[in-house]
Nucleic acid binder design. Sequence first.
DNA 1: TCATAATCGAGACGGTACGTCGGGTCTTTGA
DNA 2: TCAAAGACCCGACGTACCGTCTCGATTATGA
Lengths: 199, 199, 199, 199
Amino acid sequence: MSINHRAGAQRSEAARVAILDAAAKLFASSGYERLTMEGIASAAKVGKQTIYRWWPSRSALIAECLADGYLLPNDRFDPPTAGHVLEDISAWYSSVAEYFRAGNNERLLLSLISAAAGDPGVAEHFNARFGGGHTIEARLQQGIDAGELHPEVPMNQVAEALIGALILRVLARSTMEPAFARDMVQLVLIPHQISPTRT
Amino acid sequence: MSINHRAGAQRSEAARVAILDAAAKLFASSGYERLTMEGIASAAKVGKQTIYRWWPSRSALIAECLADGYLLPNDRFDPPTAGHVLEDISAWYSSVAEYFRAGNNERLLLSLISAAAGDPGVAEHFNARFGGGHTIEARLQQGIDAGELHPEVPMNQVAEALIGALILRVLARSTMEPAFARDMVQLVLIPHQISPTRT
Amino acid sequence: MSINHRAGAQRSEAARVAILDAAAKLFASSGYERLTMEGIASAAKVGKQTIYRWWPSRSALIAECLADGYLLPNDRFDPPTAGHVLEDISAWYSSVAEYFRAGNNERLLLSLISAAAGDPGVAEHFNARFGGGHTIEARLQQGIDAGELHPEVPMNQVAEALIGALILRVLARSTMEPAFARDMVQLVLIPHQISPTRT
Amino acid sequence: MSINHRAGAQRSEAARVAILDAAAKLFASSGYERLTMEGIASAAKVGKQTIYRWWPSRSALIAECLADGYLLPNDRFDPPTAGHVLEDISAWYSSVAEYFRAGNNERLLLSLISAAAGDPGVAEHFNARFGGGHTIEARLQQGIDAGELHPEVPMNQVAEALIGALILRVLARSTMEPAFARDMVQLVLIPHQISPTRT
DNA sequence: TCATAATCGAGACGGTACGTCGGGTCTTTGA
DNA sequence: TCAAAGACCCGACGTACCGTCTCGATTATGA
């Protein structure tokens, strides 16, 4: 009756979680370049083969960490829908910039950039969270629907300009002063605003 | 004996150039992560110690390659001053985007990003060439002086938005269709244009 | 998880033998001072780490070669028990001297001396084979038992004088003419002979 | 003022002495295998080239140290002529054994053996001081002349047996108890003594 | 219920590259 | 011409990880 059912032990979820946890922890603390498979295996108390059995490479492992929210908070990067679209986008952008200014998070983002630059798979997940900016575009669409923005606002470019500028700042190790977020949002959105609510 | 025996042999310029050449070549072909000191030494026909004598690390070597123009054409990234500021900036941005779309140059930029993410020294030189956007800002200032742009145009943000978006696109492995450059420049500059040429 | 995860893969006997073989071969051909771990690893088609995992140093490796008979024939250095003790010892001593006069064996002994001088561990095994002269002393004891030698013959000194003289000759690069062995044995044994068989 | 002045500076005796001094000191403290040309040059405050200009190799340098008495006291190894030949030889042999039991001298001898094993030039000078045993043979000849020894005593073998046994003991890291020297001398000389003082 | 088969921690294996030490040669500057 | 200083190319050092491969033990089927 069985189509293709083999015997044998099943994949250990405990091992999977231990590996992702260890990888994420070491990634955040040591960066992508110093992340080693042996280090992960040792920290997760797992044989190396158990890693290689399920992930083909270090970057695939990091990509899954990213996809499963081991590296970044899943909710942090959604814009609010509290008030006027400019205020919401501005608040969201400030919040993201703030997040990457604190603690080791700048290092984390740098490592993510490095990983994304080195591996298309990581880049894809990285982009899903940032670059594509689906959530931002969704919020912009709400602004259009609410009559706060011109309908022809180039949502894609707006998102890319904002996120790209942020990445560039982090890459350049520039300080991200509070005004940065506000100015950037103004630059790309005010021209497309309908009622002039200069903040 | 003698009071002041200062000197021995001088640093070999030939070795220095051979090392930078080899490093740049291997960097472009293999990427930052696969770049090895032994590979460089072997390609440059130089002892490893000669590299370590003058550069403390792989990244410092790449930083000097970048600073000395071994990795990127020095002149390619200056905007023209041919006509209207929008056209010139647009032409320059298209040209840069085009450059990184061709051949191995996308890989080169990805490697540069990786190197910059991993090392502040590289990031500094990377930024000097891109991020700071001194040359772009200079061209914008000319536009202001020519009465083509409002004086209060936030030059810094404009530059960062443009370059950041480009980097993000490369990171995301998105195709950079021709319209990309034009749309991006319009997004950040048209609002500050004095004679309204809304396209 | 599990209670007792003891074992990993076992030590590869093939690798061990290949390493000892390669080490012995290179030792005999190039001498102790030119013997390199990389050379051994390469000749044995083995990773360097596999050598360092099991032997702490080049000298420990040579000591094991010596102990396991990779460098010297195990049986060559036992005296015969064919006839009179003087003849047997003399024949044995000639045979040993002859062995180290032939081919690369002189170089081999010189390298062994060098290794023994540089490392107590090697010296111990070197001594076990030569210096202690257990087998010679055993043969002398048989001579005593057979009434051919005075019981008070200082076996230890006799052995050391014989072997020491041989080593000194090799060290000095003196030729070991055939008479050498006979004369040396006569010097140390004839006085202790019981029936005067002056040869 | 000068009679025959070719161009150029003359060899600096100060440098020569400094080099030999440094070499001897490092040889005694670190052993032959750890002796480095750079270490000698640095300790002697001399350029490496100044060493290579006058000595072709490390071993040649050690050979000259040995020949010029930088490594061993020149007088220590001459037998006395105080009384009966057996007593004198015995005293001398004890004294030599004692010398190499003290302090770092055992290490020194081991290093010398290593150097001699590795280089014929060193071996020659090593032999001139020990192996040939010219001075011992001279003393034995005096014993013959004085009617204390049979004329046919094989002086060469006697010397080689004594010195060889001593070297073997040092090689084997055996302790050289006081009785060793007396027993060894008795073994090789008593049979050839004329007045029978069997101990 | 028990052989089959896949998993697990552990770790040895052949390799590549690391960053350092020292070898012996060459170059520069000064006496 | 020699000496000091030291840069040069090169080979080897001992270590860290790579990705693969055995181990023995531990589960889960499914005949």
